Simulated assay, not measured.
Amino acid sequence: MGDKTKRIVIKIGTSSLVLPSGQINLRTIDRLAFTLATLSHQGYELVLVSSGAIGVGLASLGMKERPAEIAKQQALASIGQAALMRIYSQRFLDYQTHVAQLLLTRDVLEFPVSRQHTLNTINTLLAQHVIPIVNENDPVSVDELDHHTTFSDNDELSAQVATTIDADLLIVLTDINALYTKDPHKYPDAQAITEVPVLTPEIEEAASGSSTRFGTGGMVTKLRAAATVMKAGKQMILCNGENPKIIFDIFDGQQVGTRFGK
């Protein structure tokens, strides 16, 4: 990790926060809180982009299947977001760290005035050593021709947040160890790609879809996030979020996952 790296956005996906059984993965959340709190105490400025509202909503109501109706999904997100923030607040306070909630829609980051207000809020929180926890405002987001407020996924959201706040690095925690030459879930001979200085058609072709019923993003969306960050002259690291303490390895300079950018 370079000496100039100070402001970091960490994105964690639903697959890391919700167990295959549908229950909340408290061990991962606790490790995430410990790791980020430790780094915050060391002077790093951290923003957490967290998925999981619908998944946690399902767990809260004891439901197994994600409903097809948009209104029901948005209601679950509303329930789950409150539960998720309660867990985050408790866990981070265990490590003497405060968190704050920011729920964003696409238009907020597209319009200059609201974008600047969002940046001002995040900068103020970071100056007070508070970790903003960002998610899409799912209960009110809509995707219509004249009112497009949704992000395609939280991978895109994390990249937009990272570029908005001029973060030095985006770390994407997911359910796979790295970017591979092909889908490692299907092909045992798939090879990990450790460095991606530029995105090529071959690399984009190797991307595969999501492997979880709880999440919405796949490798394609992560490559789009990487492209956004790289265009801004920054870097992104994609790695396995099963144990978020892997972030310590990144800061110790170890080779972890796939690094995008020069």
Rank of each mutant, 00 (worst) to 15 (best):
A33H: 07
A33F: 07
A33V: 07
F34L: 15
T35H: 09
T35S: 14
T35D: 08
L36H: 10
L36V: 05
L36R: 10
A37H: 06
A37K: 07
T38D: 13
L39E: 11
L39T: 08
L39A: 12
L39R: 14
S40Q: 14
S40N: 15
H41A: 14
H41S: 14
H41T: 11
H41P: 04
Q42K: 15
Q42I: 03
Q42T: 09
G43K: 07
G43M: 06
G43W: 09
G43I: 04
Y44V: 04
Y44K: 13
Y44G: 05
Y44S: 06
E45L: 11
L46P: 11
L46D: 11
V47Y: 03
V47Q: 02
V47L: 06
V47C: 02
V47S: 03
V47A: 03
L48N: 06
L48A: 05
L48G: 05
L48D: 02
V49P: 00
V49S: 00
V49W: 00
S50G: 01
S51V: 00
S51D: 00
S51I: 00
G52A: 05
G52R: 04
G52D: 02
A53N: 03
A53I: 01
A53S: 14
A53G: 05
I54L: 12
G55D: 01
G55M: 01
V56E: 02
V56Y: 02
V56S: 04
V56G: 02
L58A: 02
L58H: 02
L58Y: 02
A59G: 09
A59E: 07
A59H: 09
S60P: 08
S60L: 14
S60A: 15
L61D: 08
G62S: 06
G62I: 06
M63T: 03
M63Y: 12
M63V: 01
M63N: 04
M63H: 11
K64S: 13
K64M: 09
E65Q: 13
E65L: 10
R66Y: 02
A68R: 15
A68Q: 15
A68C: 13
E69C: 06
E69P: 01
E69W: 07
I70A: 12
I70P: 07
A71G: 11
A71E: 14
K72T: 10
K72V: 06
Q73I: 09
Q73Y: 04
A75P: 03
A75L: 10
L76R: 12
A77P: 00
A77M: 01
A77T: 00
A77R: 01
S78A: 15
S78N: 08
S78C: 12
I79Y: 08
I79K: 07
I79C: 09
G80H: 03
G80D: 01
G80M: 01
Q81W: 03
Q81C: 04
A82W: 09
A83V: 13
A83Q: 15
A83I: 11
L84Q: 07
L84M: 11
M85C: 09
M85D: 05
R86K: 14
R86W: 07
I87D: 11
Y88P: 00
Y88W: 10
